[in-house]
């Protein structure tokens, strides 16, 4: 009797669980579709002719004669290669500087004692809450005064020293037990060696996360380069793509091909680093 009842209960429970699972998967698939369909559409449109892009009846994902030419033509229609070069250069330099200087500063904030520590950290925190747009104009005037207008270096100065990076790395380092540093100090290591030999190797997840953030935001930045980079040979891929859209408004296939090209590097970086990603966010205190 009791056995039967528990069996029944178990059965209905498992039935509920099954329905629950199905609902969960259904929702997930719908969300995944919403997330990914625009990208598939982009891929599909990038090998279509202008007429085919908006052809709905019948709609095909891959046209009968794919226009692979679109991927060749975009390189000649605009100096895309130059734009890519500029962006790659900027992104790599900014990311490296950001990682290096933020983790350096964060180590000091997390593990060392010094005067005005709280005041200085407060300055960082306060600017996180300050939208860049609030001071972009004076910043621009100042940079121009320094002769940095229309120089890639301006973008580097602008993006390499973010408060966010320091904040994130500091949160992460605080999660690393102090004993580890103490022990190293007992062994006679100086602070620089401790940073290099102990802290850095431990901070892979946080560094990966910061890399993704910095890489993505530098690669995709639009307003910054728009203000600072004026000469065509210095423009970044986002500006170039936007310019291309302005000039060849009805060349949908080409625009989409250009867009696909601009996405590849960020997506690659993300895919490579993503296994550390959630861990990095969790351990760097970004969750609050």
């Amino acid at each position: 009797m009791t056995n039967e009842m528990t069996g029944k209960k178990y059965k209905s429970k498992s039935k509920n669980a099954l329905i629950g699972k199905i609902v969960v998967y259904l929702i997930l698939f719908i969300i995944a579709a919403i997330m990914i369909v625009p990208f598939l559409w982009m891929l599909s449109a990038s090998i279509k002719s202008n007429r085919e892009v908006f052809l709905m009846d019948p709609f095909v994902w891959i046209p009968e004669v794919p226009k692979w030419n679109n991927y060749i033509n975009i390189w000649t229609k605009i100096p895309l290669l130059k734009f890519v070069e500029n962006t790659v250069f900027l992104t790599i330099v900014v990311t490296c500087l950001q990682l290096l200087t933020s983790s350096f500063a964060a180590y000091s904030f997390a593990k060392l004692e010094f005067k005005n520590k709280n005041l200085m950290f407060l300055a960082y925190i306060a600017t996180i809450a300050m939208p860049w747009q609030v001071y972009m104009v004076p910043q621009f005037i100042m940079m121009r005064g320094m002769g940095l207008n229309d120089k890639l270096l301006a973008m580097i100065c602008l993006q390499a020293f973010s408060a966010f990076g320091v904040f994130m790395m500091k949160q992460f380092y605080e999660g690393i037990p102090n004993d580890l540093c103490e022990a190293a100090r007992i062994d006679g290591m100086n602070e620089y060696t401790i940073y290099a030999k102990i802290m850095l190797p431990l901070s892979k997840p946080a560094l990966s996360t910061l890399t993704i953030f910095t890489f993505v935001s530098t690669w995709n930045d639009y307003l910054g380069p728009l203000i600072y980079l004026k000469t065509e040979s210095k423009k970044t891929i986002q500006l170039g793509l936007r310019m291309f859209i302005g000039q060849y408004s009805s060349e949908y296939g080409l625009i989409m091909a250009g867009s696909v090209v601009s996405l590849i590097p960020v997506i690659l970086v993300f895919l490579v680093l993503q296994k550390y990603f959630v861990e990095g966010v969790a351990s760097s205190g970004l969750k609050g």
Partner: peptide, 9 residues
């Protein structure tokens, strides 16, 4: 919406 250029039109 499509930012159509007059020359294309």
């Amino acid at each position: 919406a499509e930012g159509l250029h007059y020359s294309a039109a």
